[in-house]
């Protein structure tokens, strides 16, 4: 049987970009097997019925794979549970009578659209600048046509788990997007298929990232906040690849054995 929690919420309300916002206080009764977003739904239902404007927040799949949701909950990106997005956070993580502060991601690269919703287009710009491989897509190639070492395949898969939610930027004391960029870069750089464009990718993704975000000071907050538990090992790999992107003689890259 689920327990019903009585909670006080302090939620950041802001009419739009550039306007001044403030915390508003709400109370809600919610069963502890509800998710955090269901709890916000309940608050919004109450607001509807009272004829007030509901809280705007991003959400989509509600199973932790789309990367749409994400808010700061009591000063932690995606809340107190490790390795989950906000939608997978359940109210049993909180106790009856608790006050919870909910705030949007804050970064110059993520301007607030409204309330808890931020504009994450900067992430799209980073991926556009190199987060892909340029190949003709046709029929799927035969499995195992290109041998990939198991360790590399596992590591690339770990990086590819990034859902682009922005928690790394939100959690970083410097608003750096190094974990996101490294994950989007390294899942290709670690595989044979990503080698042909590796150095151009490394260079352009880092430099595009730096148009929007801060710099890494190796606190490690991002990997704690990441709902996919992506490690900062990828940031180290990115740092190395960025230096090499400046040094390698790209005319000779075809001489290297790829894969």
């Amino acid at each position: 049987m689920s327990k019903v929690l009585e909670l006080t919420l302090e939620v950041w309300r802001q009419d739009g970009p550039g306007t001044k916002g403030a915390f508003e206080t709400y109370t809600v009764e919610i069963p502890d097997d509800a998710s955090f977003l269901e709890m916000l739904d309940k608050v919004n239902e109450n607001l509807f019925q009272a004829g007030q404007e509901p809280i705007t927040f991003d959400h989509d799949c509600r199973e932790g794979i789309c990367g749409s949701c994400g808010v700061m909950i009591d000063g932690q990106a995606h809340g107190p549970q490790k390795g989950t997005a906000t939608c997978q956070l359940h109210m049993r993580q909180f106790s009856d009578g608790q006050t919870i502060r909910v705030e949007p991601w804050r970064a110059a690269g993520f301007p607030i659209i409204k309330d808890l919703m931020v504009n994450r287009a900067a992430f799209d710009r980073i991926v556009e600048s190199g987060g892909y491989i340029t190949v003709t897509t046709g029929a799927a190639p035969d499995a195992n046509e290109i041998p990939v070492p198991k360790d590399a395949a596992d590591s690339a898969m770990d990086a590819a788990a990034c859902i682009g939610c922005g928690a790394c930027v939100a959690a970083c004391p410097n608003s750096a997007a190094n974990l996101f960029t490294a994950a989007k870069m390294q899942h290709l750089n670690q595989l044979p298929q990503g080698q042909a464009e590796r150095w151009r990718r490394s260079e352009s993704m880092v430099e595009t990232m730096e148009e929007f975000f801060g710099s890494c000071t190796n606190h490690g907050e991002c990997q704690e906040a990441c709902p996919k538990e992506i490690t900062i090992d990828f940031i180290a790999m990115m740092n190395r690849d960025y230096l090499r992107s400046k040094l390698v003689n790209r005319r000779r890259l075809g001489e290297r054995k790829i894969g």
């Binding site: 302090e10 950041w12 915390f23 700061m72 009591d74 000063g75 932690q76 107190p80 502060r101 705030e103 804050r106 970064a107 110059a108 690269g109 004391p173 410097n174 608003s175 750096a176 730096e210 929007f212 975000f213 801060g214 710099s215 000071t217 190796n218 606190h219 490690g220 907050e221 990997q223 704690e224 906040a225």
Partner: peptide, 24 residues
Amino acid sequence: INQKARPVRYQSPRNYIAANFASR
């Protein structure tokens, strides 16, 4: 660069997990 990257700070206290006294 880092100060520019977050012009508006978090309005509620942050709860740091990994950042230690030395790094901060």
